[in-house]
Amino acid sequence: MRRTLLILLGCAVLGAALGWVLTRPDPLEPNYAQGLTPDPQAGALIFAAGGCVSCHAVPKSEDEAQLVLAGGLAFPSKFGTFYAPNISPDPEQGIGTWTLPQFARAVTRGVSPEGQHYYPAFPYTAYGHLAPQDVANLFAYMQSLPASDTPSQAHEVGFPFNIRRSLGMWKLLFADDDYVLSGDHDAEVLRGRYLAEGLAHCGECHTPRNALGALDRSAWLTGAPNPSGKGKIPGITPAQLEWSKVDLVEYFTSGFTPEYDSAGGEMAEVVRNLSQLPESDRAAIAAYLKALPGD
């Protein structure tokens, strides 16, 4: 009896230790992007493609004011309400004192400089595809933006989701470094995949989620309920969207659908971001969507 108890206790301790190790945040890579020269101008395009403004700008701000990334936008979910933080270069309230390796770990691995997991409302599973040069360019650009001393708002998340360490398990289960679209593809489709699955994180809205809020990769881009509770975000695979490649490029450029209606809601903001990219990038995203299975 005493022996059984001891074995059980041993298992529990081992299990807890294993869990602790497995849920540990990814370590900092102090040599990240070393030897690369950051180009802030190129970073402006990464910034646009990544849609940073759509979440981190002050809600309802427009034009130039959108470049003040003071945050504050609320993201209601069944796990609680998340608030976009201040990521302006303010040294106190923003990310002004961050190093490039810290920034890279935050954006591509979802870990704060303090070593805490971020909630996946921040699409780091998508940004994980980012190339170090692009991360370096993005960081250089963002550090050139205006600072704001507005403090970030705390998330309103209940137990057990308020235990950050549990996000380590979430990452273990759901963060996948592989692309969803596999197989051989031409350079344009591959560029489109980098943009659509990575930077532009299309899947975050257009792919349904499971009970734990992770993307269902088997139903990639086939549409999902709108988190606002109203309506549905459309599927955009060839099976669901019969737009031609030219139609898609026009939509990403001007927001006009083939019927000359205009993009609405969050997608209007996405179009504002995509329209800043070179036309070749918009064509690449269109080529990627056309290459998805389901035609």
Binding site: N226, S228, K230, G231, K232, I233, P234, E250, T253, S254, G255, F256, D261, S262, A263, G264, G265, A268, E269, V271, R272, S275
Partner: peptide
């Protein structure tokens, strides 16, 4: 000019039209 026209349509629909779907 198409881009600016699209932006003007979209900006108004965004704020003053209920979502379509």
């Amino acid at each position: 000019s198409m881009g600016n026209l699209g932006k003007a349509c979209g900006a108004c629909h965004d704020d003053y039209r209920v979502p379509k779907n």
